[in-house]
Deep mutational scan, measured.
Amino acid sequence: NKASVVANQLIPINTALTLIMMKAEVVTPMGIPAEEIPKLVGMQVNRAVPLGTTLMPDMVKNYE
C-alpha cells in the first residue's frame, strides 16, 4: 500500500503548506501520494483541513 499525505495539524484556509504540516500515512481512500510532499510545499489549501485529514487533490490550489 502506498502512503498518502495527511494533515499533521489543523491547516487554516489559504495557508501555504510547509513540511511540518504534513505526514505520510497509509489511508483509505488514498489521497495525494506521499512522494508529492516536496511539490506541495508552498502551495495553498483552498479550505480548512482538520488534523488527521487526508489531503485530496481538490483541497490544494493549482495542484495537478
Score class of each variant (00 low, 15 high):
30 M>F: 14
9 Q>I: 11
6 V>L: 14
49 V>S: 02
24 A>T: 11
14 N>H: 12
21 M>C: 04
19 L>Y: 10
10 L>V: 14
24 A>N: 06
33 P>F: 04
44 Q>M: 12
3 A>P: 10
44 Q>A: 05
53 T>I: 11
52 G>P: 01
55 L>W: 01
35 E>D: 06
30 M>W: 11
22 M>R: 00
62 N>Y: 10
1 N>E: 15
64 E>C: 15
5 V>P: 02
20 I>C: 14
2 K>V: 15
27 V>A: 12
24 A>Q: 07
22 M>F: 14
5 V>L: 03
31 G>T: 01
35 E>M: 05
16 A>V: 09
41 V>D: 07
4 S>V: 03
36 E>Y: 08
60 V>G: 01
25 E>K: 10
2 K>I: 15
25 E>D: 10
37 I>N: 02
57 P>R: 14
52 G>E: 06
46 N>M: 15
51 L>K: 09
27 V>S: 10
45 V>K: 00
47 R>G: 03
50 P>T: 07
5 V>H: 00
8 N>G: 08
17 L>A: 01
48 A>D: 06
3 A>M: 09
15 T>Q: 05
33 P>R: 12
17 L>R: 00
48 A>E: 03
50 P>D: 08
63 Y>R: 02
23 K>Q: 03
63 Y>G: 03
10 L>W: 11
23 K>A: 04
2 K>T: 15
60 V>L: 04
27 V>R: 10
45 V>D: 01
16 A>W: 10
2 K>Y: 15
50 P>C: 14
46 N>K: 13
2 K>Q: 15
14 N>Q: 10
42 G>H: 07
45 V>L: 14
11 I>S: 01
15 T>S: 05
36 E>Q: 12
19 L>S: 04
11 I>H: 01
44 Q>T: 13
51 L>A: 05
62 N>P: 04
50 P>L: 11
42 G>L: 10
4 S>Y: 12
28 T>L: 03
40 L>A: 02
57 P>G: 14
1 N>F: 14
21 M>H: 04
12 P>E: 14
58 D>C: 15
48 A>R: 14
53 T>F: 14
38 P>R: 08
62 N>K: 13
34 A>Y: 13
58 D>E: 09
30 M>Q: 06
54 T>V: 08
6 V>A: 03
36 E>D: 11
16 A>S: 08
16 A>T: 06
53 T>P: 01
11 I>P: 00
51 L>G: 11
45 V>P: 03
19 L>G: 03
9 Q>R: 15
43 M>S: 07
14 N>L: 08
22 M>Y: 01
44 Q>C: 12
41 V>Y: 15
17 L>N: 00
58 D>Y: 15
25 E>C: 13
13 I>D: 10
3 A>C: 14
37 I>W: 02
15 T>P: 01
12 P>A: 07
52 G>R: 12
64 E>F: 07
43 M>F: 15
51 L>H: 06
45 V>F: 02
25 E>L: 09
39 K>H: 08
18 T>M: 05
27 V>Y: 05
28 T>D: 14
60 V>P: 01
11 I>T: 01
48 A>T: 07
52 G>L: 13
12 P>Q: 11
27 V>F: 06
20 I>T: 14
18 T>P: 01
49 V>K: 01
5 V>M: 02
18 T>F: 12
21 M>K: 05
58 D>N: 10
56 M>P: 01
52 G>N: 13
50 P>I: 10
43 M>N: 04
35 E>I: 06
33 P>E: 08
15 T>A: 05
26 V>Q: 10
37 I>Q: 11
42 G>D: 04
5 V>C: 09
36 E>P: 00
17 L>P: 00
3 A>T: 12
14 N>Y: 05
49 V>W: 02
9 Q>E: 14
23 K>F: 03
30 M>H: 13
16 A>I: 03
53 T>D: 06
56 M>L: 09
63 Y>N: 03
49 V>C: 07
2 K>E: 15
18 T>Y: 06
45 V>Q: 00
23 K>W: 05
57 P>Y: 14
6 V>S: 04
39 K>G: 05
64 E>K: 15
46 N>R: 13
14 N>C: 14
9 Q>V: 08
11 I>Q: 00
45 V>E: 00
17 L>G: 00
17 L>Y: 00
50 P>S: 10
52 G>V: 01
21 M>Q: 03
20 I>D: 02
43 M>P: 00
48 A>I: 07
56 M>W: 04
27 V>G: 05
64 E>M: 14
41 V>I: 11
20 I>S: 15
63 Y>S: 05
56 M>Q: 05
20 I>Y: 14
13 I>E: 12
10 L>T: 09
59 M>P: 01
46 N>G: 10
50 P>V: 05
16 A>N: 03
8 N>F: 15
36 E>G: 12
1 N>C: 15
46 N>E: 04
9 Q>T: 11
51 L>V: 12
21 M>T: 06
51 L>S: 05
7 A>D: 00
55 L>S: 00
44 Q>I: 06
49 V>R: 11
45 V>T: 08
18 T>K: 10
22 M>N: 00
41 V>F: 14
19 L>H: 03
10 L>I: 12
58 D>R: 09
4 S>L: 01
59 M>C: 06
52 G>A: 07
3 A>Y: 12
10 L>A: 11
54 T>C: 12
13 I>P: 08
22 M>Q: 02
57 P>D: 08
50 P>H: 04
37 I>H: 02
8 N>Y: 15
64 E>Y: 04
31 G>Y: 02
